[in-house]
Write a protein that binds this DNA or RNA. Structure first.
Length: 300
DNA sequence: AACATTCGCAACCGCGAGGGT
DNA sequence: TACCCTCGCGGTTGCGAATGT
């Protein structure tokens, strides 16, 4: 037995909305407000449409203050940053861009922005992040990977000073992780990398981080991706949690709940690029490409 | 000019979450 | 607490427009 349909499909119109339908929907909502029962709305408004269709039409097109047209560089930056942080949670991303809808952003990302970033053929050792386009060599690696959903409790924890936060992918790892990093104060902080675990004895870096902890903690406004590219060798030697981290390509992802972006693009870029900063931080380069690839690492 | 292909965007669909009963 | 119903989300589809051959 399948799910009951949300409306009578046989008597419902599909496809593009006509100006008359738009006018009816607008008029009804202006009169009675958008809140209430979307399923019952079409009948009340005299529309032969599914309630879900009405809702979508209103939210994505008819609602006041909807912004159409080109995205600005600043919006591009915000979308990129948030996508790197939280993945394809378009509604969350849309909440940071007034006037833009999740559908709009999703379409923009899939058709333009992704290509804009990924389509650029950047040399591998370009100095990172001198402009937005230079994000490409970083994002290429991330976007090639399937995005994992946030674990339900990946928000709301505070990591101790000078520690590495890691989101582990198995239940057991997750348990160990939270045993090590207690949840408190209804706040998430992305940790500044532990200097010891950042650099291995041969000088290569095993981690990257985006965003400096002091900025995040101080402002409590924005969380950035804290990426982790593990080097099992250096971790085993230098990180007390190395045993947990012995899988390649683990990425810790989180975002402050109800966060508000309050940085301009330059600051966002700055945050992204300031993986280091203040007492040991992330780096980007592995010393040896073939070694990195053999170990299944990202390589920049 | 005609046809094929690609692109961009609006709309659809199915699912999970959450509230109400 | 189990079930039902609606909402909201993210992935996908379909179609007209634009571009290429």
């Amino acid at each position: 037995m399948g799910r009951a349909p949300c409306c009578d499909k046989a008597n419902v119109k599909k496809g593009p909305w006509s100006p008359e339908e738009d006018a009816k929907l607008k008029e009804f909502i202006n009169k009675y407000g958008p809140a209430g029962n979307w399923i019952a709305l079409p009948q009340k408004a005299g529309l032969k449409r599914c309630g879900k269709s009405c809702r979508l039409r209103w939210l994505n097109y008819l609602r006041p203050n909807i912004k159409h047209g080109e995205f600005s560089d600043e919006e591009d930056g915000i979308i990129c940053t948030l996508y790197a942080t939280i993945g394809s949670r378009w509604s969350v991303i849309a909440s940071q861009l007034p006037g833009r809808t999740d559908n709009d952003i999703k379409n923009y990302w899939n058709t333009k922005l992704k290509k804009k970033i990924l389509g650029l053929n950047q040399p591998k050792f370009q100095p990172p992040f001198s402009s937005l386009s230079n994000l490409s060599h970083l994002y290429t690696s991330f976007f090639d990977q399937p995005r994992k959903p946030l674990p339900p409790d990946s928000i709301n924890f505070v990591a101790p000073q000078n520690s590495t936060i890691l989101y582990s992918n198995t239940a057991q790892q997750h348990e160990e992780f939270h045993a090590y990093y207690p949840i408190k104060d209804n706040m998430l902080v992305f940790g500044q990398n532990d200097a010891a675990s950042c650099s291995s004895s041969d000088g290569s870096c095993s981690q990257i981080s985006y965003g400096a902890k002091d900025r995040v903690v101080k402002n409590e406004q924005i969380g950035f991706l804290h990426g982790f590219i593990d080097n099992p060798n250096s971790l085993a030697l230098e990180d007390p949690l190395g045993s947990i981290f012995d899988h390649h390509k683990q990425i810790n992802i989180g975002v402050l709940e109800n966060s508000q972006l309050q940085y301009d693009l330059e600051e966002v870029k700055q945050l992204i690029t300031s993986g280091g900063g203040g007492g040991g931080g992330g780096g980007l380069l592995f010393g040896d490409e073939s070694k990195a690839e053999a170990m299944g690492m990202y390589y920049f």
